[in-house]
């Protein structure tokens, strides 16, 4: 009789210890995704700070691309209104493709391309896009770690009990943003 009581107590103690460990691990993984996302937002903000300057410079040479400018301005204000992570990721993706189109349009204006100020802006934009790619990769890596942890046995049991999200979304890149669009005749 005493023996069974002892065994039950030992089992309970082990369970409590294991669940504390699992809980703390999940908390730190969850925190990592938040930190990584904050980094993503910092570099996205950098992109949005760069846009007015870029658009104004391009406007001076390519005034009749006004529809593209309007779209970029609209997306920029959408970014200000976006609240959730998914909304922000979505506007960021749309902005990425709009900017990629802008840089293609620019190819038609040799005077603009030779402009010193524009050349500097082009490097700043390329650097910003690269920073976004880097932070996006790091964010996706920690999301992958988190997703794996919450779905693996036995942590998945605790994850549900402690109310962790079952799965977090990755921040996907635009498929074709980096490539120039094909010319159709």
């Amino acid at each position: 009789m005493k023996n069974t009581l002892f065994v039950v107590i030992v089992i309970i103690v082990i369970l409590v210890l294991v669940s504390i460990g699992a809980y703390n691990r999940l908390i730190s993984l969850d925190e990592n995704t938040d930190t990584a996302w904050a980094q993503v937002e910092t570099v996205l903000q950098r992109r949005y700070d760069l846009i007015p300057n870029l658009v104004n410079t391009v406007k001076g040479y390519a005034a009749h691309e006004s529809r593209l400018f309007e779209e970029i301005t609209r997306l920029r204000s959408q970014w200000g209104e976006a609240k959730t992570t998914d909304e922000k990721a979505q506007t960021a993706t749309q902005m990425e493709s709009a900017l990629a189109r802008l840089m293609v349009v620019v190819e038609n204006y040799p005077e603009l391309k030779a402009n010193q100020n524009f050349m500097a802006l082009q490097d700043e934009l390329a650097g910003t896009e690269n920073r976004i790619a880097v932070e996006r990769r790091r964010f996706n890596e920690v999301v992958r770690d988190y997703n794996m942890a919450v779905r693996r046995f036995p942590a998945n049991l605790f994850a549900r009990a402690f109310g962790f999200d079952a799965k977090k979304n990755y921040f996907e890149a635009v498929e074709d943003a980096a490539k120039a669009p094909s010319v159709e005749f």
Partner: peptide, 12 residues
């Protein structure tokens, strides 16, 4: 930029 010193994915 905030520098996160906690190593996230282990890649840095």
């Amino acid at each position: 930029r905030p520098r996160s010193s906690s190593s996230g994915g282990g890649s840095r």
